[in-house]
């Protein structure tokens, strides 16, 4: 064992491709499952959330307009960089979730594989969910799935990496951009994930990650007029109904996930479908 003093990391927010501290100047201590201090995380504010929405909106046109092949490669690149950071994630997940090393390894491996699974979806979604519509008339009519827009994601509180990856990847795979509130008490793997995103060709603003108190920030996202969809997965039980009610103010798409969602199981397409619109285009046929 070395006597060297390690360089401790400052955990910050991830907004618009940059790593700012919370504009509020607040931070909160993060501990491991036994209560030992791990780090101070930035305690994001309403203003941070709004900055994140603005960054996500700004990034939307380019990300949604990128080719599916390009998005697939960018997502696959994320998996490559995740793999390179495997050891770091294993120790962070072990500390955050209080699991044995072997279990943490399996969680991280599944998370990386999950990311690869979604990376492969980008250029198949339109073929699987789209259609040529055999309308009764001289028209060509086709329907294509399109991203909903800016999605606010309340990440799972327990599953700090696998759950996080499982809720972010389906949002961005189809061209949406995301504002993510991390697990409140287990935020460190999320911040490390943001370092992965920042170094793997994901354009700034496509994913924005905020640490802090979910109950404090979530209501601002639920009522924000420039947020198109809301994932309630990590919402505190006592807050879910209120958040849904606020979301109705601008007719947001709300994903009311199953509370007991098992992230270890390979998912189906439902999380992809949750953030997709269907656009139907018509054109007359004739000479």
């Amino acid at each position: 064992m070395s006597d060297r003093v390690t360089v401790a990391k400052t955990y910050k927010l991830y907004i618009g491709g940059a790593f700012p501290r919370s504009e509020s100047g607040r931070s909160y201590p993060v501990t491991d499952s036994k209560g030992t201090f791990l780090a101070n995380a930035a305690q994001g504010s309403r203003k941070d959330a709004r900055d994140a929405v603005a960054a996500a909106r700004k990034a939307f046109d380019k990300w949604s307009g990128a080719t599916a092949y390009n998005r697939g490669q960018v997502l696959y690149r994320v998996a490559e960089v995740l793999e390179g950071r495997r050891e770091q994630f294993i120790s962070e997940v072990a500390a955050s979730e209080g699991v044995q090393l072997k279990k943490a390894q399996s969680i991280v491996d599944t998370a990386i594989d999950r990311w690869v699974w979604y990376a492969g979806w980008t250029d198949k979604i339109a073929a699987v969910l789209g259609s040529a519509n055999p309308v009764a008339g001289p028209y060509f009519s086709f329907s294509t799935p399109e991203p909903t827009g800016v999605v606010a994601v309340l990440a799972p509180q327990q599953s700090s990496l696998l759950g996080l990856v499982s809720v972010i990847a389906p949002v961005i795979a189809s061209g949406n951009t995301a504002v993510v509130i991390t697990s409140q008490d287990r935020p460190l793997p999320a911040i490390t994930l943001s370092e992965v995103l920042a170094t793997s060709d994901v354009p700034g603003g496509v994913v924005n990650i905020i640490t802090g108190r979910t109950a404090e920030i979530a209501p601002w996202l639920a009522s924000h007029a420039d947020v198109n969809a809301l994932d309630l997965t990590g919402a505190p039980e006592s807050l879910r109904e209120d958040l849904e009610r606020s979301a109705a103010g601008t007719v947001k798409r709300v994903l009311r996930n199953k509370v007991s969602e098992d992230f270890a199981v390979t998912p189906d397409m439902s999380r992809l479908r949750a953030y997709l619109e269907t656009k139907t285009v018509w054109h007359p046929m004739g000479v």
Partner: peptide, 9 residues
């Protein structure tokens, strides 16, 4: 134009 085979919404 409307048709039952063409999604609308």
């Amino acid at each position: 134009r409307f048709d039952p085979t063409a999604p609308f919404g």
